[in-house]
Design a binder for these strands. Structure first.
Lengths: 363, 363
DNA sequence: TTGAAAGCGCTAACAG
DNA sequence: CTGTTAGCGCTTTCAA
């Protein structure tokens, strides 16, 4: 006789089932160490009031069982899920051409991982409402402690939604007017576009065009304004500005339109809102018989590795997306009062990276 | 007097605190609807035994409060987190050049989202042990119901680890020998490389080289074998094979080495293990004075959008990464017995996509 | 220095 | 048809 059956704890009985060993719980660790569950809890949480020998026995038992506190149970107890949400409203196709998101995510992870937080990602496509639904679910189901947003729009509805949902939020990039949200961005956002215009002006370019992103994006509006200002500062007529999407096809169409003009009107340099469009535009120009940079200079935005791979290599405006992601995560931790190693993360201003796709203006 | 203070429920008292309204719970919904909590539970879970009017009252109350069952509580109760984990062991830099992961993730999400599952992503860099630690934490903390793996290695340790951790796993790609894991992959994996060799042979190429990925990757080993077989089938000497990493720099170095040979030995066509390397290699060749495709034909792998952007556009072997991701998620649902709309997802074999970077062999 | 016990929000038996 | 209640695994008072 080893004892009355009804004394056998539930766990042990379950463990004997044909499913093999169940996942260990704090009770198993306590039993193995010969202590109470609260002792185990105190040990793993670094609370004091535990003698070194007891502590060691608990640690050994936990290691032997391969046990760590269940994130779920901890979350239920303390209302902290230790997960941050992010919703990307982009089609796989755009996502594939443009590592913008991927870089941001890398940066975010760099901060989250050491603090033992996870990133819950939702990629939802661009159907209207999909993004909002994703945030709503994240909030209502309390799956995450907060969310990181990107690509603020003019008249963005997400901030209000999130505030109603009481979900802490951090925006990567500039908010529109005074949207009530914590935003992280580079110091001196405008430096890149200004430097690009100055660079082209110095090369003798006078007719410079700008191919922007969709106009509901806040950064589109801001950058176009900066572009216009910079042109004026150099005493140039505001160049022609085309509104495009972020796709390669859009860039090709824009390039065709710009190059269709008479020689005297045709731009000798074009700024694109991202590198993908710039590369696509560059090739479109070449297929139309224009040599880059001899007949036409091209500048991108983001400094993706792509720009170094192509021929001619792409002059571009670099922004440190990884760092921006880190900053966003750090800001989130601030909002949540989560202690974390890194303090506030500085983000350098965007800067011009001259390569082969820009050259002297044609005479 | 509205009643004795000690009768006031906890919730209501908390709600009155300065923090504003607390997140509603099932009890709040029940109270508002004037029913019991179990009635609410039954309604949201579609159980029967609830009269239509009651049901409606509950639904209204839930909507009014913006309530949905707490994912945490549900998980604790049922041991299902409704989240799938994925660990990407890649540096941000590689991630940025190569949307391989991004596309996979898009596909995974496409399946997960409709089934109301989340994707918990960990990007860990390539330090040894980092990946394993990430999986271990995912498992020990029971944050996810299962994990999706990519890039199986020769002698991969992760499968054993995950089995010990009792975490269901699905591998994207071919396992090495008979690693005990559910794997999803395209029908006829080898079709792409075979088609590429046939294509080049048809264009008159006789000296064809292959620049592979790191040799601990299973697909590297398999594809090299297929390459050798295909060459033999066409009566060609096995071309020179170089082992590289997946980076642009690696490709440039490989290209330099291949083109340094005497004209009689120099390959007239090169197959690369991914598109990034192919594009980088193509440009390296051009900088060395070789025209593509006149002097040298180049073929990539993956069919990333990048291939269409560059000039000349890249002939490549396309595999449907989004579909592979979907298949992996579907397989995971199978493993977890989660009912989901999509049945098993078929993945088409890799196929050759001829573009401008391949042409007749130089005479 | 240790342990017992009360919940966190939810679901599923079981009773009415 | 509807309500009561016992946990899921954990942390945290409060007592011993």
């Amino acid at each position: 006789m080893t004892g009355p059956t009804e004394e056998q704890p539930d766990r042990a009985r379950r463990r004997a089932s044909r499913n093999g060993p169940a996942k260990p719980t704090i009770a198993d660790v306590a039993a193995l160490a010969g202590v109470s569950v609260s002792a185990v809890s105190k040990v793993v949480n670094g609370r004091d009031g535990i003698s070194p020998p007891t502590r060691q026995r608990v640690l050994d038992a936990a290691a032997k069982l391969g046990w760590a506190p269940s994130a779920t149970a901890v979350a239920l107890r303390g209302a902290r899920t230790r997960a941050i949400g992010m919703v990307a409203g982009r089609s796989p196709d755009v996502l594939a051409t443009d590592p913008h998101f991927t870089l941001l995510i890398s940066g975010i992870e760099r901060e989250l991982a050491p603090a033992d937080h996870g990133l819950l990602l939702h990629i939802v496509g661009e159907e209207p409402g999909a993004e909002e639904r994703a945030y709503r679910r994240l909030a209502e189901e309390r799956r995450v402690d907060g969310v990181i947003l990107t690509e603020s729009r003019v008249g963005d509805l997400r901030f209000d939604l999130l505030r109603r949902l009481r979900l802490p939020a951090v925006l990567v990039g500039a908010p529109w007017r005074d949207d009530p949200v914590v935003a992280v961005r580079a110091a001196d956002q405008d430096a890149g576009v200004r430097a690009a215009v100055a660079h082209l002006h110095g090369l003798g370019h006078r007719r410079i065009s700008y191919v922007s992103g969709p106009q509901d994006r806040v950064h589109t509006v801001f950058r176009r304004r900066v572009f216009a200002e910079a042109m004026a500062e150099h005493g140039l007529r505001p160049g022609r500005t085309l509104i495009s999407d972020f796709t390669a096809q859009g860039a090709v169409a824009a390039m065709r339109e710009l190059l269709a003009a008479d020689a005297g009107e045709r731009p000798t340099a074009v700024l694109f809102a991202n590198d993908t469009m710039a590369v696509a535009g560059m090739n479109a120009a070449r297929r139309l018989g224009f040599d880059v940079p001899r007949d036409l200079s091209v500048i991108g935005y983001d400094d993706l590795p792509l720009g170094e791979l192509v021929y001619p290599s792409l002059t571009t405006i670099g922004q440190d997306l990884v760092q921006l992601g880190r900053a966003a995560a750090a800001a989130m931790f601030g909002l949540l009062s989560v202690p974390h190693a890194t303090g506030p993360v500085p983000v350098r201003p965007p800067r011009l990276i001259p390569r082969e796709s820009t050259g002297p203006a044609p005479v």
